[in-house]
Design a protein around this nucleic acid. Structure first.
Lengths: 236, 236
DNA sequence: CGGCACTTTGACAATCCTCAAGTCTCGTGG
DNA sequence: CCACGAGACTTGAGGATTGTCAAAGTGCCG
């Protein structure tokens, strides 16, 4: 196993308060792996044997219903944990994680979780905070889907993506990973057709620029207006 | 402070594995309180200073958006924890808890959480499992709202209520607490009007019997059919 | 260069929300 | 005990939003 350097994880929230020794301990039990774009890091229903930290790239987490419908649960950024079924007492992964771009992850076997709980309480606290935050974000999403129009929801989703994974390009702010209309639809509870229509309309108004699996936001203030104005009927 | 008897909590999942001494310890830090119907146990945004266990009654947990829209996050049953912001590292309560009927709760100050973490790991593990389960249920709800019609969603919500708080009555299975059309609407992301129409229709078909803040399910198999029989929203 | 996946766009329709007007139930106070 | 009022519920009409169906572009990879 290659040596993993402390600089990989130093400064990341989960490891914020750890001493050099403790980071050594953490890394000594981790291995790293590379996942190429569109490959699965773990799959829904699979027995959870490890938990993960994303070192580089972006991961899309997808949940599938028994009927085969899907939603995008979230996108994971660099430095975030994923697959932490062990911390939730779940024997299997509750969703599927797919590399949205080529990714590098650290992997720990679930077996060391008890030790970490004992020796690194600050790490665990951080993990539980992460789960709590995600629960609340999910509730906010239910509020959104329940009470807002498709237009607002898509606008908000884009703004969140900009916030989370925006990268300055010369035309505006681009989402830093490939994302399809279908993906956006699965984030907002609508269809790819509606998303496509909205994006086309916004492009005509100079708010975004569209491409294949690509969205560039060129007028964020205007998009924010759309997200907040419930029920602004704009005509051609 | 009145003496709290171990029999109050013995057998409840969070305290399953505790010794008599440990239960003594837990109870020595708890106080009990009574909340009358429609009163708030804690409020969204309020500084979280305690966590709770519902001994008797039912509690409705509601989340409100900045715009004032509400959704019912869940109903809490007897024996369940609520207001466990401390376990999620949240300084304030993320939702409001309202007594759906007269309730009795146990209350612990957040200050003793660190001690419990240290002395009663099984209790904490159970708490984290609870949070994990709720996160997954919430994701399932997003799947439902995103992909199913109003009719299916309301049917499913009723079935879940039956499962969770069904009580045999001579006509069928009644929901064991008062629940309005508006409440059901806020559970399913629709309007009280749509819920009312559906329930009226189902009453005509002999599937339910309706009353003021009351629903009795008389034909559960038929309702299950409605919940599952969905016009799929699938794409090519 | 061919094929595939992604995207766009039009036409149409239905689900479900909004608005509006009642009716019914129940608790409270006279 | 009865009347009253407020909150809960029902129901109808109408139409906007947005999903469905269909078909044709378009960019990209091998």
């Amino acid at each position: 196993m290659p040596n993993l350097d402390k600089s990989l994880i130093a400064g990341l929230p989960p490891f914020q308060k750890l001493s050099a020794d403790e980071m050594e301990f953490v890394l000594s039990h981790a291995r790293s792996a590379r996942y190429s774009r569109d490959s699965a890091i773990f799959s829904q229903g699979e027995l959870a044997q490890s938990f993960f930290l994303l070192l580089s790239g972006y991961v899309r987490v997808v949940r599938t219903s028994p009927e085969g419908d899907q939603v995008v649960v979230r996108y994971i950024n660099e430095g975030e944990l994923l697959g932490i079924a062990i911390a939730m007492g779940t024997p299997t992964y509750p969703a599927t994680a797919v590399a949205a771009v080529d990714c590098i992850v650290l992997i720990w076997p679930n077996a060391i979780w008890p030790q970490m709980q004992e020796r690194l309480p600050s790490f665990c606290t951080s993990t539980y905070r992460t789960i709590g935050t995600r629960l609340q974000e999910t509730h906010d999403r239910i509020l959104e889907i329940s009470n807002e129009q498709v237009e607002q929801r898509v606008a908000r989703a884009l703004l969140r993506l900009v916030q989370q994974a925006g990268r300055k390009s010369k035309d505006g702010i681009a989402i830093d990973f490939p994302i399809s209309r279908q993906d956006i639809a699965e984030m907002t509870g609508t269809t790819l057709h509606s998303v496509s229509r909205l994006l086309s309309g916004w492009e005509d108004e100079g708010i975004v620029r569209n491409g294949r699996q690509k969205v560039i936001i060129t007028d964020q203030p205007q998009l924010t207006l759309i997200a907040e104005n419930r029920r602004t009927r704009r005509k051609a």
